[in-house]
Simulated assay, not measured.
Amino acid sequence: MLNLTQVGGRYFFSVGFSWTEEVMRYSMIWLMMMGSVACIFRAEHMGIEALEAKVPPHLSRYVKSALYSVGGVFCIVILVYSYPLALRNAAQTAPASGISMILPYAALPVGAALMLLQIALSWFSGFERDGPGPVELAVSPVNKEMR
Rank of each mutant, 00 (worst) to 15 (best):
L2K: 06
L2I: 10
L2C: 08
N3H: 12
V7W: 06
V7I: 14
G8Y: 01
G8C: 01
G8E: 00
Y11E: 06
Y11P: 04
F13I: 03
F13R: 06
F13V: 03
V15N: 13
S18P: 11
W19N: 02
V23A: 07
M24P: 08
Y26I: 09
Y26F: 15
Y26W: 13
S27Q: 11
M32G: 13
G35K: 11
S36D: 08
S36G: 15
C39I: 12
I40M: 15
I40V: 15
R42M: 14
A43E: 15
I48G: 00
A50Q: 08
L51T: 01
A53L: 13
V55F: 15
P56F: 04
P57W: 05
P57S: 08
H58D: 09
H58V: 01
H58R: 11
L59F: 10
S60R: 15
V63A: 10
K64E: 12
L67T: 10
L67N: 05
V70F: 14
V73F: 07
V73I: 13
I76R: 03
V77M: 13
I78G: 05
L79M: 06
V80S: 07
V80H: 06
S82G: 03
S82W: 02
Y83R: 00
Y83Q: 00
P84Q: 02
L85P: 01
A86N: 01
L87E: 08
N89Y: 11
N89W: 10
N89S: 08
A90V: 09
A90E: 11
A91C: 06
Q92K: 06
T93H: 14
P95L: 03
A96H: 05
S97W: 04
I99W: 14
S100E: 00
M101S: 00
I102K: 00
I102F: 04
L103H: 12
P104Y: 08
P104S: 04
A106C: 01
A106M: 07
A107R: 06
G111Y: 10
G111E: 11
A112Q: 04
L114I: 05
M115Q: 13
I119L: 12
A120P: 02
S125Q: 07
S125T: 03
F127Q: 04
R129G: 10
D130R: 15
P132C: 08
G133A: 05
E136G: 10
L137R: 12
A138Y: 02
N143C: 07
K144W: 10
E145P: 06
E145F: 05
E145R: 12
M146V: 15
R147L: 14
